[in-house]
Simulated scan of single mutants.
Amino acid sequence: MAAEKVVLTGANGFLGFHVRSALKEQSVEAVAIPLGDAYNSWRSPASLEGMDRLVHLAGVNRGSESEVAEGNVLFARQLAEAIRQCKVPPRIIVMANSVQSLDKSVYGLAKSKSAEILGAAAESVGVKFQDVILPNLFGEHGRPFYNAVTATFCHLLARGERPTIENESQLTLLHAQDAADLLLGCAPIETLERLTVDLTVSELLYRLQEISRIYTQGEIPDVSSNFERNLFNTYRSFTFPGDTPILLTQHADARGSFFEILRSHGGISQSSFSTTAAGVSRGDHFHRRKIERFTVLSGDATISLRRLFSDKIVKFRVTGAEPVAVDMPTMWAHKITNTGPGELCTSFWSNDIFDSQAPDTISEAVEL
């Protein structure tokens, strides 16, 4: 899909982070429109002028019943006002709606009403409206005890705690990066059902417990399916940087030394090896879904990482004399720099075979 001019509401929320991360693959920086008390009746219409796509992500899902009901409808009315004031409105208006809009809860009714308001505004200015009904979302950097049960389970397991189940129920889960592709038109809406996975809360917890048990040993769990890979990426976002680097056991005798770099429990993978001259860096990119592990075999290096849309850099100083593994979290820009006087030798492992047509390797400097 060709790069579009995109404007977002709710750009700083959980789904907003994932949508903005997905847009970086197209080299698109979205324009953000604030709603609620920060709404500006003059600037907002101007921000919409000539845009290709408006994606409405903002919502109120916590608070009193009146705050939830009135807040969501207020957001929709403010946005509808801005749409109607545009001389050249966005070509397509997309609402990230919730499956709860199909029930009679206060939140569900508010989301349903919001969709009606935006749909009417789109029709009044002659543009397309898409009401995308999303199921339970999960993904990297979700907010525990707020966004979803997956985030809560991951948070607790990463801290060594034992989650409990208060209400057993059936879940339909969709990874936030897949939701972003749907909302941005990178994947057809008709594929939504194929991208979801149905399981109970207890089944979800069991899978995450297994992921945690295996990864605590420094091993990679079975990531042969997209869902398992996405669930693993979600879990490990809660372990970084506290559980990094992963210590590797080295065995040495008169013949030399030996250590295992990685044990993988399932899925395809690719291993590679590089040498890097003194003072040179490799990387300055990020991945949306790819799992990648760096292990320095000889020499000295610094591995630097920065989460997208943040300016804080995390650094690990590593050496082949004391081998460790550093796994690159998804949606973090990263690079490795040879900081020693001689040649740096590094092993790289990823969970997929490199495809030049779909590399999932997106240029992004660690140091801004």
Rank of each mutant, 00 (worst) to 15 (best):
L8G: 01
T9L: 07
T9P: 01
F14R: 03
G16Y: 07
F17C: 03
Q26T: 08
V28R: 05
A32I: 05
L35C: 10
A38I: 00
W42D: 14
A46C: 02
S47F: 14
M51C: 10
M51W: 00
R53V: 06
L54C: 04
L57E: 00
A58H: 04
R62S: 12
R62T: 13
G63F: 11
S64N: 07
S64I: 08
E65D: 15
E67A: 15
A69R: 14
A69E: 13
A69Q: 10
V73N: 00
V73Y: 01
L74C: 07
R77D: 00
E81R: 09
I83C: 05
Q85N: 10
V88I: 08
P90M: 11
R91L: 12
I93R: 04
I93M: 07
V94T: 07
V94L: 03
N97L: 01
N97E: 00
Q100H: 15
Q100T: 09
Q100P: 00
S101P: 00
S114R: 01
E116V: 07
V125Y: 09
V127R: 13
Q130L: 14
D131E: 14
P135H: 14
G139R: 07
P144S: 12
P144C: 11
N147Q: 12
F153G: 02
C154Y: 02
L157M: 05
E161H: 05
R162D: 04
I165E: 05
E168R: 13
Q170C: 02
L171Y: 04
T172N: 11
L173C: 03
L174G: 02
L174W: 01
D178C: 09
G185P: 03
P188M: 10
I189V: 12
I189G: 07
T191L: 07
L192W: 06
L195F: 03
V201R: 08
L205I: 02
Y206V: 08
L208E: 06
R213S: 13
G218H: 08
E219T: 01
V223D: 01
V223W: 01
V223Q: 00
E228M: 15
N230S: 13
L231V: 06
L231P: 03
R236G: 02
P241N: 09
G242H: 08
T244K: 09
P245F: 10
H251I: 14
R255E: 06
G256R: 06
F258L: 14
R263G: 02
S264A: 15
S269W: 13
Q270G: 08
S271P: 02
F273V: 11
A278T: 13
V280A: 06
R282A: 06
H285L: 12
I291L: 13
I291T: 12
E292P: 02
E292F: 03
R293N: 10
F294T: 08
T295S: 14
V296W: 09
L297C: 07
L297I: 14
G299P: 01
S304Q: 12
D311M: 08
K312P: 01
F316T: 05
G320E: 08
A321Q: 14
P323L: 11
A325C: 10
V326G: 03
D327F: 03
M328D: 03
K335W: 04
K335A: 09
I336S: 01
T339Q: 00
T339C: 05
P341Q: 15
G342I: 04
T346Q: 13
S350C: 15
I353Y: 08
F354Y: 15
Q357K: 14
A358Y: 06
D360E: 09
T361M: 10
T361A: 15
V366N: 03
E367G: 05
